[in-house]
């Protein structure tokens, strides 16, 4: 039998790599705990409502259809392509946005638990990412409905669509470090959560979700600054997941950038985890 504290007990100084990795692995061993709490989070939000978590799916469907209709008309795009395009973009974006916004609050909102029950801090981040995976899964229903309705040359799936699975896995791995890093920094500096929220909101407009980056590049008059949007890290994650889901061609450099971000992000996060993990309970 294992327990949080006994597992977390590593005879090493508070600031050590051993303790940082012990936190992550001990947190992972408690997946029954955060698995349960993640579900609980979703159920709690829709308690006493008749449709329950299906509301997640419905609200995503409403947003995607409304904006898909609007922008397909504005940009003169065929609905059968643009509606699924917007839908997938929104689903992926929803995951990214929630990981960052919730990440900034992850320790602050769990103050009570952190100060009263000994547990690795990663437990709270695993719970957050798991909860957002569940949201993602609910939203995916909208995608499959679209697939049934709009299946065509411009929107189809094949074996290569399975690439979306490792692509989403990569996004989840990033969600982990983002949650940990944002959580640690925001717990110390309480101005971070509102700043993060507005930056993320701004990034939405710079990410090809309601507009199409390929079209921008293929248009006869490419705006000179168009390539600049590739500095937006979110673009790469959206592209690696959306392209296979819509049946578009594989573009290697989105993957390269996404993997590079993953590695760099984890390196920085591990450094923070090593140095500030034991401070979180003091800061909350």
């Amino acid at each position: 039998m294992s327990t949080l504290s006994a597992d977390a007990y590593v005879d090493a100084p508070s600031r050590s790599w051993a303790r940082a990795f012990a936190d992550l692995s001990s947190g992972w061993r408690h997946r029954e705990l955060w698995g349960h709490l993640g579900w609980q989070d979703i159920k709690q939000r829709y308690r006493r409502s008749v449709l329950g978590p299906i509301w997640i799916t419905i609200s995503m469907a409403v947003t995607a259809v409304a904006l898909g209709l609007l922008y397909s008309q504005l940009f003169g795009q065929p609905l059968g392509f643009f509606l699924p395009y917007v839908t997938v973009g929104f689903i992926v974006w929803g995951f990214i946005q929630k990981c960052i916004d919730d990440g900034a609050e992850v320790f602050i909102s769990n103050e009570g638990l952190i100060r009263h029950l000994p547990a690795p801090i990663s437990v709270h981040v695993y719970r957050l990412v798991w909860r957002n995976i569940l949201f993602f899964a609910h939203n995916l229903i909208v995608y499959f409905v679209m697939l049934a309705i709009f299946y065509s040359d411009r929107f189809h799936v094949g074996w290569s669509s399975l690439l979306a699975v490792p692509a989403f896995a990569l996004l989840v791995v990033n969600g982990m470090w983002v949650g940990l890093l944002m959580g640690i920094v925001a717990t110390r500096f309480r101005d971070i959560p509102p700043v993060a929220e507005s930056v993320v909101q701004l990034m939405f407009f710079m990410t090809p979700i309601v507009w199409v980056y390929d079209d921008l590049l293929n248009s006869p008059r490419v705006p000179p600054g168009a390539r600049l949007v590739e500095f937006n890290p979110f673009l790469h994650f959206v592209e690696i997941i959306r392209r296979p889901m819509l049946g578009q061609s594989f573009v290697a450099h989105y993957w390269v950038v996404a993997i590079a971000i993953t590695v760099a992000g984890w390196l920085v996060t591990l450094l923070f985890l090593r140095n500030y993990r034991s401070r979180v309970s003091y800061w909350v």
Binding site: M1, L4, H30, E32, L33, L37, L117
Partner: peptide, 11 residues
């Protein structure tokens, strides 16, 4: 169950 999970037990 939840409190037990917090204390390191399984479901």
């Amino acid at each position: 169950i939840i409190r037990g999970l917090f204390l390191g037990m399984t479901r």
